[in-house]
């Protein structure tokens, strides 16, 4: 009995040895802003909400659209388009507010045009060698991921929330 178990364990070890080392994959939420797709590290995402009434706050930074009521909490919502210098948002029924949970800033909403899917990407599937053509990309993009035939620009989430603006 005991020997049998040992045998099994040995086999198990062998099998594991044979398999290629599993690359640690991270999950990303793929969102659409304008015509391009962007990936957001899912570990920062608290939830994704539908469009709701955003209360404008006068005299704040240009890229903050206003505040919303998220289950009784007041959460600021930023426009990533404005932040990246892509002009004003166009609200459609596909528009979503992604609520990010940051250690430093707490909850912050980010308005995106569309949420497409969740993908798994390993480090090998992300090209970190990005030559940014736009200033905004240099600031907020830290890599390009390959999702099938599509390319996904990976956001540096902490940079989005830093108070620098491309515009």
């Amino acid at each position: 009995m005991a020997e049998e178990k040992k045998e099994l364990e040995k086999k198990d070890v062998k099998r594991r040895d044979l398999e290629p080392v599993d690359e640690e994959k991270k999950q990303y939420i793929v969102v659409k802003i304008g015509d391009e797709q962007y990936g957001l590290d899912i570990s920062y995402v608290d939830n994704i909400g539908r469009m709701q009434k955003i209360t404008r706050v006068p005299k704040v930074q240009y890229h903050y659209i206003g505040i919303i009521n998220l289950r009784g909490e007041v959460v600021p919502v930023m426009s990533i388009r404005r932040k990246m210098g892509l002009g004003d948002d166009v609200i459609t029924n596909k528009s979503r507010i992604i609520i990010l949970k940051m250690e430093e800033q707490g909850l912050v909403g980010v308005l995106v045009d569309e949420v497409r899917e969740v993908i798994d990407l390993g480090e090998s599937e992300i090209d970190r060698n990005v030559k940014a053509s736009r200033k905004s990309d240099a600031l907020f993009i830290n890599g390009i991921g390959k999702n099938g035939n599509d390319l996904v620009s990976i956001f540096e989430v902490t940079a989005i929330l830093d108070d620098v603006s491309a515009s």
Partner: peptide
């Protein structure tokens, strides 16, 4: 009363 959070530049009026 709820706070506006840390990221919004708090202008004095609000």
């Amino acid at each position: 009363i709820k706070s506006l959070g840390k990221v919004i530049d708090n202008n004095k009026m609000i």
